[in-house]
């Protein structure tokens, strides 16, 4: 049993934020962390994906790569923007699309063995949630003006004290949004990697043991494959949910309700 405990401790240490060469992060000064490194890689992948894609823009894409990028952008246009904001939302395609593909590439790169998801640390997800938070308020203020925007918290035609209570709840739930947005993405990525790691520990310990246990090790390995498939699904779904909620928040700020 002690070996499992040791393994888990080692796993949690590996998943914590360390500098790129495996040391503890100093309390001051700039240091490239292990998560930061893969965050930069994911940014570069996102950038190259679209820069190369933009060079192949044609009325009818004639290369496989061009079709792939077009399918991705069309997915954002139809499923993320179209279903939620309709035609009016098309000008926010760039923002929602950037959020979606950046989170998606971060999540997917994290699944390559040996690498980490840039979104697997609170720093990244909180930053992105705050970017979304500021953006949708800015969009709302730009459309309705500052006081006009504040007015949408106040329900019309309701007894004044009740309306004040509702407005208070609305404001509180508004400030909880970046919290839930960031915790959801972070916890999904972190929990997924811990789960994969723990099944690897089981497999490794069983394989080290003697006799019949070596054969039983096939069970955690099979489960590992299934979990990996699940994590692949979760990586895409979480990017989708992050982008969908961004679109929903922008739609709410535009004041269609």
């Amino acid at each position: 049993m002690d070996k499992i405990g040791e393994g888990v401790e080692h796993l949690l240490h590996e998943l914590s934020v360390l500098s790129i060469n495996g040391h503890e992060v100093p309390s001051s000064g700039f240091v490239l962390t292990n998560y930061g490194f893969f965050l930069i890689i994911a940014s570069l992948v996102t950038l190259t994906f679209f820069v190369l894609g933009a060079r192949r823009v044609k009325l009818r894409p004639d290369s496989r790569y061009g079709s792939l990028v077009e399918a991705g952008v069309e997915f954002v246009r139809d499923n993320l923007i179209g279903d939620i904001m309709g035609k009016a939302g098309q000008k926010y395609l760039t923002f929602v699309g950037t959020v979606f593909f950046f989170v998606l590439f971060n999540n997917l790169i994290g699944l390559i063995p040996g690498s980490k998801p840039g979104t697997g640390t609170m720093g990244t997800t909180v930053t992105w949630a705050l970017v979304v938070f500021v953006t949708y308020h800015a969009i709302g203020i730009k459309k309705h003006g500052f006081f006009g925007y504040l007015k949408h918290y106040w329900p019309k035609g309701v007894w004044a004290p009740l309306a004040a209570f509702v407005a208070l709840l609305e404001v509180i739930s508004d400030f909880i949004r970046p919290l839930t947005l960031s915790v959801r993405l972070f916890a999904n990525m972190y929990a997924g990697h811990i789960m994969l790691g723990i099944f690897s520990i089981f497999a490794a310990l069983m394989f080290e043991a003697s006799g019949v246990m070596k054969v039983v090790a096939i069970l955690p390995i099979a489960l590992q494959v299934a979990l990996y498939a699940l994590e692949l699904f979760v990586a895409v779904i979480q990017a989708y949910i992050f982008a969908v909620l961004t679109a929903v928040y922008i739609n709410g700020a535009l004041g269609s309700h």
Partner: peptide, 22 residues
């Protein structure tokens, strides 16, 4: 459309469980 709405509702419910995890 139902699927899109389902994922939003799912995400809101899931967040509460993940608060416990954190």
């Amino acid at each position: 459309r139902l699927q899109t709405t389902m994922f939003i509702a799912l995400a809101l419910a899931e967040a509460i469980a993940l608060f416990g995890f954190v």
